[in-house]
Design a binder for these strands. Structure first.
Lengths: 151, 151
DNA sequence: CACTATTTTTGTAGTCATTACAATTTAGTA
DNA sequence: TACTAAATTGTAATGACTACAAAAATAGTG
């Protein structure tokens, strides 16, 4: 149930053959310490206070690089913008239709690996499988019930 | 293994409480006869020759309406643009990383319905589940092998 | 150290899907 | 026919993302 298989940002970049510049370290570290699946903009504005010379383009460049080298995952979950996940282990996502929150579902690792390995009759080569749940999260459920009373 | 549970576009719109204007009929009919999971732009330009008064905005409006009323599904599969699916039955998708083609995988209906029904410990309410396979389709696999020879 | 080549970062300008909005047209009904 | 509501249109705006060329930082070599 490890959230990241690397202890440090350094280690993670090295393992994926990415040269560890200060900005790259900052981005990957942010991803590793953030289970919130941030967008490029969220990463940029969070880091900007600490690194005022940081450019938005740099964040986009780094995220693209991280995804290419498989140090992070780009999630096609939100039609508005891409979300990024520093946890590259097999897991699925729950997306709340109410508040948009994205939660990890670690329990599907076995299912996902089986679906990836399986042979498919149409003869395609499956490289990865993504499983997304959409619904209402616990927080939004409790908000819905309290103010209403009768329905 | 029905691709659409309605025989006619008329029938489909009526079943979802959507008034059957000519444009709406054209769009839903296009979706029903097209397993290619088209984008808004593809739908627009395909219909434009037959309906020269058609506006791009109208296509966007109609697609939004169809998705809201669950007469079609908006697929968050491609970060560039939304793809639409007129088949609202439980099925998953295979997306080719080579050519971008989207294929239906009808075989997962049972799995999807089980995952939707399942109780989750975190207490969220799961409304729907989407399962996406990514890899190389059969066509692209055969293209890769022919020109190379040795590798 | 000095000098050069390469990598990384920057900022601006552009692209492109999608939406907001107000005006116009069409359909439904008395 | 006239009035109301729904549907459609076209333009302008939004906003995420990318292209690109210049500037800055870094690494390598004598």
């Amino acid at each position: 149930m490890k959230t990241s298989r690397y202890k440090t940002a350094q280690e993670c970049l090295k393992a994926h053959n990415i040269r560890p510049s200060l900005h790259r370290l900052a981005v990957i570290e942010y991803l590793m310490n953030n289970a919130a699946h941030p967008t490029a903009e969220e990463i940029f504005s969070s880091l900007y206070s600490a690194i005022p010379t940081l450019s938005r383009t740099t964040v986009y460049n780094i995220l693209k690089l991280l995804a290419e080298k498989k140090a992070a995952i780009s999630l096609d979950i939100d039609p508005r913008q891409a979300h990024y996940d520093g946890d590259t282990s097999l897991h699925s996502h729950f997306i709340c239709l109410g508040c948009g929150a994205i939660e990890d579902m670690e329990s599907d690792a076995g299912l996902l690996s089986e679906l990836t390995r399986r042979k498919y009759p149409s003869g395609m080569l499956v490289e990865r499988v993504e499983l997304n749940y959409r619904g209402i999260c616990r927080k939004c459920l409790s908000k819905e019930q309290k103010p209403a009373g009768a329905t």
